[in-house]
């Protein structure tokens, strides 16, 4: 900002045009409106499948394939929602998804936080080598593991149980990697201060580290739980 204010003559307002080319001196360039109109258009096209999903959900089954490009069929079929709710145990299914997502996220978070803390802050033999091997499995396609996991769950008689959807997928390296990277960028002085005040390592993790990594965790958990939902419905 300062370099910019210095570099430019005082005639224009640097804040409004920071990212535009120097040619754009007027307050609102036509390109500004074109860009926004384009954004609305692209946004609508991009969002269209969801609108179509909604429109289709209100069409009678017999007309789904015959309505062409029309959003509305001969009548609005609200009963589709009643059918969806009653044809399958919908409440139960939603609860299952929530259960799998929440339990999965909670388990992954605890496990990843503990591992990440050890990898970021502790000294032990072969730490970096172990971390590299751990991280290397990020490349591993889940499909390579699916068949042995299926056999394993079959042997443990856990096929068709929520446990089989939660536990095996909670130990991936991604969460630990993300938290470790964040911890490395965090000044250690926070933890030292807590330690001097007499906090134990679990206490430090819970009261110092967790509040600091929370924002990072939320982002990751939201994507993790949505993929868990997809994975469980897909298999």
């Amino acid at each position: 900002m300062t370099t910019e204010t210095l570099a430019k003559p005082a005639t224009d307002k640097p804040t409004t045009h920071r990212r535009h080319s120097p040619g754009m001196r007027k307050k609102k360039h036509p390109g500004h409106y074109i860009s926004r109109a384009g954004a609305i258009l692209v946004g609508l096209v991009f969002f269209f499948p969801f609108l179509w999903m909604l429109a289709t959900s209100l069409k009678p089954t017999s007309e789904i394939f015959s309505t062409g490009a029309s959003f509305l069929a001969s009548r609005v079929e609200w009963s589709n929602y009643v059918t969806a709710w009653t044809a399958i145990p919908f409440g139960r299914v939603i609860i299952n998804s929530f259960l799998v997502a929440i339990a999965g996220a909670a388990l992954t978070t605890v496990v990843s936080l503990l591992s990440a803390y050890a990898f970021a802050r502790m000294q032990f033999k072969h730490r970096d080598k172990l971390f590299l091997v751990f991280l290397g499995t990020l490349v591993l396609p889940q499909e390579v593991l699916v068949i042995p996991l299926y056999i394993m769950m079959n042997k443990l008689e856990l096929v068709n149980s929520p446990t089989a959807l939660i536990v095996p997928f909670a130990f991936g390296a991604f969460g630990a990697f993300l938290i470790r990277q964040f911890l490395l960028s965090l000044p250690e002085e926070f933890e030292e201060a807590a330690r001097i005040d007499g906090a134990g390592s679990i206490r430090i993790l819970w009261s110092v580290i967790l509040p600091l990594v929370r924002a990072h965790l939320q982002w990751w958990q939201s994507s993790a739980s949505s993929t868990t939902g997809a994975a469980s419905s897909g298999r």
Binding site: V110, V111, S112, L114, S115, Y117, A118, F119, M122, L130, F134, T137, L140, V144, L145, P148, L149, M152, V167, P168, F169, A170, F171, G172, A173, A176, S201
Partner: peptide
Amino acid sequence: YLAPGMLGFLVFIVLP
């Protein structure tokens, strides 16, 4: 600290 993570890693990733 590593026990839960590495145990799960061994059982559910390395072993399969």
